[in-house]
Design a protein around this nucleic acid. Structure first.
Lengths: 133, 133
DNA sequence: CTAAACCCTCCCCTGCGCTGGAGGGTCAAG
DNA sequence: CTTGACCCTCCAGCGCAGGGGAGGGTTTAG
């Protein structure tokens, strides 16, 4: 099938498919004499994997590593498990950061309700945001 | 003072200070005949505000808006409060997304411990990441 | 035969907050 | 006079996942 059909069947854009090929997560397909890409059904399987991996928070670079391991060294399961482990740790850290930030923002916002704009002088810019120093 | 001294006194880099000026969060200072920037003490106050606002999760574009409001329309407190409100909502959404993702990642990772790499076939790439379709 | 839909490559653009480097000028000390 | 530490402007790039559009060629239906 041509790239447009693959796009509609996967819900991706033609641009994205060409980008995936350049990124190394979708193998370069055969070409017709006209130069048009000609995909087989395996492309659908591959793209399902790419989407599932993206949904699990993996980057295209990581997905490329996985398919490379698969093609050269056999089942990449251990590698994938390590990647997931790293991502879980990373997510924990980012969630903790964002949660702390959210509490700080709410604290500032609640405090702002008890402040009078008239008390705010020019040099401070805005006393809703305290400079603490 | 010259830009290097301002940099060391604020802990920022010379590059960052010039960038802040271009971004409109730090006013362009006087210039010496040599063309060197010559800052006064107000620059320190301004930079303290910029850092505090960044710590509250505001972008430089938002900070530029705040100082613009301050300079043209008086106390920006109401504007700042609205910004903080928006950020809080946004943070809630992002935290919820990341939390859901983290649970999915942990679920996949735990499931992986119960899978045998030998069961993994080539077309599936890696059965640790199920394609569900 | 022609128009429309499709495809190709190539290069630039987005947001964010900077950083690095090239290629110069300035200023003080030795 | 020279060295070195500053300073200037302008250009380029990072990482991420593509999107937009120019300027062509191809296929297909009427």
């Amino acid at each position: 099938m041509r790239i447009g059909e693959l796009a509609t069947r996967t819900g991706l854009t033609v641009k994205a498919l060409r980008f995936y090929e350049a990124a190394g997560v979708l193998p370069a397909p055969e070409r017709r004499p006209s130069g048009y890409r000609d995909y087989d059904e395996a492309a659908l399987t591959r793209l399902r994997f790419v989407r599932a991996a993206q949904a699990a928070g993996l980057t295209l670079a990581e997905i490329r590593q996985i398919v490379t391991v698969r093609e050269h060294h056999g089942p990449p399961c251990r590698h994938v498990t390590a990647l997931l482990e790293d991502h879980a740790v990373d997510l924990d850290r980012r969630i903790a950061e964002l949660t702390a930030l959210r509490e700080e923002v709410r604290r500032l916002r609640d405090r702002a309700d008890r402040l009078d704009p008239a008390d705010c002088d020019t040099t401070a810019i805005c006393h809703v945001i305290p400079t603490d120093g």
